[in-house]
Structures are given as C-alpha cells and as structure tokens.
C-alpha cells in the first residue's frame, strides 16, 4: 500500500499542474481582453468568429471570448474555493475521527451518513431556495455538500495509516498526538488526498455548471460557464461559438483533470 503511495506520485503531479494552469487562467485571463463585459455591442448577435471577435458574439452581441474568460474565472475560482473548503474541513474531521476520542468518530460518522443520504443537487437546490445565489452562498453550499465525501476519504486513509506499525512504534515511544498527526500520518496522506481534491474539484465544476444552467447558480450580470450555455441556448440553431465553446471548455477542464487522475471511481 505504502509503496503505491510513492509510485503514483507522477499522477498527482499532473493533476496539480493542470489545476494550477486553470487557476492561472482564471486569475489572468480576464486581464487579456480589452472588451467591456457589460457593454452591449453594436455587433449582430451570434456572429461567427472574426478578427475583432475571435469567438464571435453572444445573444446580446457581446464578445464571446471576453465573456468566456470571465466565465472561466467564476467557475474555476468558485469551485476551487469550495473544494478548498470541503477538503480542509473534511480532512480535519477525518483525522480527528481517527485520533480523537471514539465519540468524535461516532458523531462525525453519523452526520456524514446523514448528509450523504441527501443527493447533492437536491441539497444545493434546497439551500439556494433559502439563502439565494450569492457567491458566498454558492461556495459554502458546495463546500458543505462535498465535505462528507472528503471526510470519508481522509478518515479511511488516516485509519489505514494509523494502523501501520510505524505509527504504533511512534505511539509506544510516547510521541504526542500532534507529532503523530503532522509527521507520521499527514505526509503519507498527501498523495491520495490530492486525488480526492481533484475529484471533488471536478464534482463542484459539474454541480455549479448544472446549477447555473438551471438558472439558479451564478446570476447575470456575472457569468460562469454553465450560465453562458444557458444564455446562449438559442445560438444552438446557428451553431454559434457562444454556446458551443463553453461546453467544450467545461469538457476539457473536467475530462482533463479526470484523465490525469485516471480515476475509476464513481461520481458523488
């Protein structure tokens, strides 16, 4: 098992590089475009690619590329934030469940089971119905939704590592719980946890895109990849890039990370 953690490192590296690339694009991309986002151009709507508008225009005649770069920003940053949230809380609770007193595990385990018995999209709908679609609400909602999954993964990992002999020996030596967590358990969890982070990032991209597509995610005038598809649905009839390109970008984003992780696991 342990040997595997080492030998699969390259796979994690690839996923990390990919996510870093998307983050960079999200942060810098919008700066590269000279178009004003909100400005409704004099251009015809759903025009094809031209030198002025490399990806044509959208349903209001705005520059698709500029909108797209902004959409990527929203999708990637929102999902990244919620993934960081869910994975850090999940990992913390997972390790706590293994190292703290038994009732902590009993309680967190029950809570996770409970949350997991609500389908993720449903949970999102429920929360959004009450708290609305502000950016914070979206991030927190998605963070909460994927915390139980991250908790389970990290708990299983920590449990496996905590049973290994080197942890036993450290405990027999009288090392503190903090030392054992930081020095013995965490470093060996890092690799597999990166896979989990990658997966959860993909899940949040899928969820957010679905929500926005349904009109209850990112709201105009802001835009993300899902809402961009929604806005430009009519462009489908003309094969407009405004509708097709965001679909392709979502696919490249998620399929790419998934391929890097080459996970065979299911969606949760």
């Amino acid at each position: 098992m342990i040997v595997r953690i080492g030998s699969f490192r390259s796979r994690h590296d690839r996923a990390v590089v990919l996510i870093a690339f998307w983050l960079l694009l999200a942060l810098l991309g919008p700066l590269c475009s000279s178009y004003d986002l909100g400005a409704i151009g004099s251009q015809p709507v759903f025009s094809g690619p031209s030198p002025a508008h490399l990806l044509g225009t959208d349903y209001l005649g705005r520059d698709t590329l500029a909108r797209l770069l902004n959409g990527i920003r929203h999708t990637v940053l929102l999902c990244f934030a919620s993934t960081v949230l869910s994975c850090s809380i999940g990992t913390f609770l997972g390790i706590a469940a293994v190292t703290a007193r038994p009732w902590v595990e009993a309680l967190t385990g029950r809570l996770a089971d409970g949350f997991l018995s609500i389908p993720s999209l449903l949970f999102a709908l429920l929360v959004i119905a009450v708290f609305g679609t502000s950016t914070t609400a979206l991030i927190v909602t998605m963070g909460v939704i994927y915390t139980p999954g991250a908790y389970r993964t990290s708990r299983a990992l920590a449990q496996r590592i905590a049973r290994l002999d080197f942890v036993t020996v450290a405990r027999a030596r009288g090392e503190s719980t903090t030392y054992i967590i930081l020095q013995e358990i965490l470093p060996n969890m890092a690799g597999p946890m990166i896979t989990d982070v990658g997966l959860r990032f993909i899940y949040s991209v899928l969820l957010l895109s679905n929500l926005s597509f349904l009109g209850i995610g990112v709201q105009p005038p802001e835009v993300d990849l899902g809402s961009m598809v929604r806005e430009n649905m009519l462009g489908m009839a003309y094969g407009s890039p405004a509708m097709i390109v965001p679909v392709i970008v979502i696919a490249v984003l998620t399929v790419g990370i998934n391929l890097a992780l080459d996970s065979s696991g299911g969606r949760r």
């Binding site: 899928l206 696919a251 399929v255 969606r267």
Partner: peptide
C-alpha cells in the same frame, strides 16, 4: 470517462 466528466446538461 468522458461522459462522467461533463455535466448532465451538456
């Protein structure tokens, strides 16, 4: 893999 990686609406 491609199909699980894209949102349902796609």
């Amino acid at each position: 893999l491609g199909m699980v990686s894209v949102p349902e609406f796609v």
